[in-house]
């Protein structure tokens, strides 16, 4: 979408613009938000944050220019910052302060936490690679269950499987991941 198309869409109907954003980038924004919030937020928190991002983006739509960057990149950047804000807000409300990215978000890296964060990062990368290596449908099951926090019944519906099959595969997949991690050398 170029600048003129985007301006035309904005001018014609804000609602159409929202629908376009949700359809095109809703999934990406949702994923960015949940990646930051993790299990700190409820599903409502995530949806609320996603809608906040959409509204903010549309309010400042004039700042975006397709000439200088893609809409996807722009809205992703907005999403990341707003997700971090949401994480701070929610973790503060919940009086929780030990989360996925707290060092990244709040603390300047010292020698100690830099090393720890690096290890966590490596671990997450390794975990992600293992999850991907499971093959389908197990990769999807794990991602929907643990990244998106979806219930078994929802996953079964999404993947067209029975709940029992999802549960069984999830169990096996987790055990397999555990074994791989146990025997792995991802810290090295």
């Amino acid at each position: 979408m170029n600048d003129s198309e985007w301006e035309q869409l904005l001018a014609s109907s804000p609602r159409d613009a929202y629908e376009f954003l949700i359809e095109q980038y809703g999934g990406l924004i949702y994923t960015i938000v949940i990646n930051k919030l993790g299990r700190f937020g409820t599903r409502e928190d995530v949806e609320d944050c996603v809608s906040d991002i959409m509204v903010e983006f549309l309010k400042n739509a004039g700042n975006f220019s397709a000439v200088t960057g893609s809409l996807k990149t722009y809205i992703s950047t907005v999403a990341k910052f707003r997700a971090i804000d949401a994480f701070r807000r929610i973790s503060g409300q919940n009086n929780h302060y030990s989360g996925i990215d707290d060092e990244e978000i709040n603390l300047p890296p010292s020698e100690n936490n830099t090393e720890e964060e690096a290890e966590k990062r490596i671990f997450r990368q390794e975990l992600w690679n293992i999850v991907k290596s499971l093959g389908e449908p197990d990769s999807s099951i794990i991602i929907y269950q643990y990244f998106y926090n979806r219930k078994i019944s929802e996953i079964a519906r999404i993947l067209g499987m029975t709940s029992g099959a999802v549960q069984k595969r999830s169990l096996r997949a987790r055990k397999k991941i555990g074994v791989i991690l146990e025997n792995g050398d991802y810290y090295e």
């Binding site: 949702y30 992600w128 929907y144």
Partner: peptide, 27 residues
């Protein structure tokens, strides 16, 4: 423990997040 380490799936780097959004649509 099993569940704990699975929770580490959140907090992935941006490149993986984009990959998840593309390949595992959720909405």
């Amino acid at each position: 423990e099993n569940k704990d380490f699975m929770e580490q799936l959140n907090g992935l780097d941006d490149e993986y997040v984009e990959e998840i959004a593309e390949n595992y649509p959720v909405l």
